[in-house]
Amino acid sequence: MSRLDDELRAALGRAEPPPDFTARVLARVAAEQAAATTLARPGVTRPRWRRALADLFRPLAWRPALAGALAAVIVAAGLGAGEYRRHRQERAEGERAKAQVMLALQIASAKLNVAQKKVQEHHRRGPGAKPAAHQQSN
């Protein structure tokens, strides 16, 4: 087993998804179940739904008010989807920034440890001693 194997194992650890991940999976499961239940209810079958839609778009049944309402729903759905996408993107950027701060802190801490070790070593050897040769730390 080489050192690279160990370093890869340490570097490629698992990362947790955002905290609300499980809740959102369960919400999607519930939404899917609700849709399935609605379709399974007597009287709420796909052919009747299709017939109603066909009636709505038949020229004689066409009403401007219905058309307006339909357009409003479509526009609202589009705006909602855009807002949701923007929210997701902002959250992902926030997570990324947080991870970068954590990494910077880890790197700073690692470097401080190295510096502290060198200072301690210098004190141990006495004030007149030459500094030790540079060693590559892990």
Binding site: A10, P18, R96
Partner: peptide, 20 residues
Amino acid sequence: MPELGAMPPQRDPIMALTLQ
């Protein structure tokens, strides 16, 4: 390359980041 998100603390963060 984007960062992965919250990772557990690394033994050597510079080496870990380079490998990732």
